[in-house]
Design a protein around this nucleic acid. Structure first.
Lengths: 342, 342
DNA sequence: TTATTTTATGCAATCGATAACATTAATTTT
DNA sequence: AAAATTAATGTTATCGATTGCATAAAATAA
């Protein structure tokens, strides 16, 4: 009742060799129709199921792909994973999940574990504390294991990346706020160690400059994407000689915290103050005061990341040129930044 | 540069047998300190890394666990997965994710794929279309692969389950609404095929009866946990001769849809109408009109599910008695159901 | 000093599937 | 009908690690 059927069992039953069974099951042409039928029938009857582990060991391909994200229970990342899973599953790959908790230690631990498990590739969003990328490279790309970054990338030789155009997202958001008539736009940014936040900030700055606005250092505050920090940032901003009248936040959560604080302070959003977030987290549209936000299309990003991986793994030859896919973000304009009715 | 180091490479270098290398690496006692040191040193120098695939094939344990959820990008499920991952990772297991999309077809496909991949166990929340549970049982438990249901369970011989007390959640929510002075409480429930929704409904009914209220069939509407259905349900309810003055919803999304519709209709929440949701989705607390909701503690549920699995897999002997863990839910009382200020 | 036990190591099989090579049987060519 | 192909199947090694059994060497007992 418990024993598992192998090709040897089938071979024994039919008095043929395991090799023949294997050939029959794999549609090899060098086999007679008679035996093929016999084998297929026996396999069916005996409930044979291929042991992928044995296949993996033999072929050197586990058909498993590792995915590392800071936290899986963040809507953006779970959306990406959804996309990855959808795309890879239909291509015969399984997805192994690891969380880095935004620490380099866990990240390296995960990479090692995944490599030991012989994954065929690693798709990841780096933690904002990652410093030793060379270590990761040595373990993966240089040993022939495809590595692909999504969203939180870093430009490395041999590493393909899939991101959205964060610069564009920052630019658009800021331009939108300017169009709405805002005069003093602050920016709540994320860690300086991550490209995505640097790019969003650059977009913000350029939009200001292109419109003849001044870029003020004191209007840019670094946060860790927590709600509370949005509130704190607002406090800080309102202590300035000229408080801003708008915020472009690199995080929806921070935007939310800011809005709550503004409300508490009696500042009316969007009449007196406009806010735009980033990420298009589901909650942004649920609020009565819905929050404008930049959509990063997580599921699409996941699918494309998976596709880039598949392309890479299926490309013959050794010379793999890294691919840099940049998706276009979309700003959803909602109530939090619209003085006139939408 | 690309070749992977095996114990044979180490053995060759040291002029000893692979068996000895294996013993040295595994801390076997039957080995001299000299050779052990030599091996460990060589392994270090040569950057040896164990191939878990080979180990898995040999031992019959892949150290991989499959997790099947309807959708990974739903906050409840991603929370559970987070908990599972945390608990299992620190025990040397990897987590393979599959989505059933709430279809039986995908569910069965996933189970087969996971079993082929030789996972050591399967943790799942069944889809609301699952009918052929016997098929699943035959593939797993009866062949010795532990199967554990979390949240969306079904009582089966040999299958452990981890759930919250849905009855209690339904009872508490309804009692709370009664305490708030609501007289006609409707219930927006989920699929009748899932125990969780039946239990929540039972709790709702019992609370009504215990308080001398009448249970009315027409006050119970089945939904699929979509926002729109909350709005539709409200429409229906207000066409009744006696429209309700409160809703206990089995889903936060449906509750949200209901609240939005009520607002559109000019019904004041919570003054004239109270709403309680289920799931404690993050957005419920972000809303200006925060939504009361029942917390299912997803991460804890995930951790406990993982623990139950570990217990089971580590328990010696064949007789595995199924374990039924029931967590206690917590009703977070927020604005949507509080007439007096909180 | 010889017999016995202990310690350290090697040999070979195993997990399940695949594939290069070898071999037999069947078919075609001349 | 003999020679040359071709088709179908078997043999065996392999992927990398573990382990029961055998064996040689060293240590202890008699």
């Amino acid at each position: 009742m418990k024993e598992k059927i192998t090709i040897y069992d089938i071979a024994a039953k039919l008095n043929i060799s395991a090799a023949t069974v294997s050939r029959a099951l794999n549609g090899n042409t060098k086999i007679s129709d008679t035996t093929r039928k016999l084998v297929l029938e026996a396999a069916e009857n005996m409930n044979y199921e291929q042991n992928k582990l044995a296949l993996a060991l033999k072929s050197g391909k586990s058909k498993n792909v590792g995915v590392i994200v800071p936290h899986i229970d963040r809507s953006f990342f779970s959306g990406v994973i959804r996309g990855i899973e959808e795309e890879l599953n239909s291509n015969g790959y399984r997805v192994i999940i690891c969380q880095s908790y935004d620490t380099e230690e866990k990240e390296i631990e995960s990479i090692n574990a995944l490599l030991n498990a012989q994954v065929d590739g690693i798709l990841m969003s780096i933690s904002n504390l990652t410093s030793d990328l060379d270590y990761i490279l040595n373990k993966t790309v240089r040993k022939g294991v495809p590595l692909i970054f999504f969203d939180r990338k870093q430009d490395l030789k041999g590493v393909s990346t899939v991101t959205i155009n964060d610069y564009e997202g920052g630019y658009q958001s800021t331009q939108h706020l300017i169009n709405e008539g805002c005069k003093n736009i602050a920016h709540l940014r994320g860690s300086k160690r991550l490209e995505i936040y640097n790019d969003r900030c650059k977009g913000y700055k350029q939009a200001l400059l292109d419109n003849g606005f001044e870029f003020k250092e004191e209007y840019v505050i670094e946060t860790k994407s927590k709600i509370d920090e949005g509130a704190e940032a607002v406090q800080k901003l309102f202590k300035l000689p000229t408080p801003p009248d708008a915020i472009f936040s690199s995080s929806d959560f921070v935007a939310l915290g800011a809005i709550k604080e503004l409300k508490k302070m009696g500042v009316k959003v969007p009449e007196e103050f406009s806010v735009v977030g980033f990420g298009n987290d589901p909650f942004t549209q649920f609020m009565e005061l819905s929050i404008s936000s930049v959509d990063q299309f997580p599921t699409e990003m996941g699918k494309i990341t998976a596709k880039v991986f598949l392309e890479q793994i299926n490309s013959p030859g050794e010379i793999k040129i890294e691919k840099k896919v940049v998706l276009t973000p979309k700003l959803w304009i909602r109530k939090s930044s619209t003085k006139k009715d939408v």
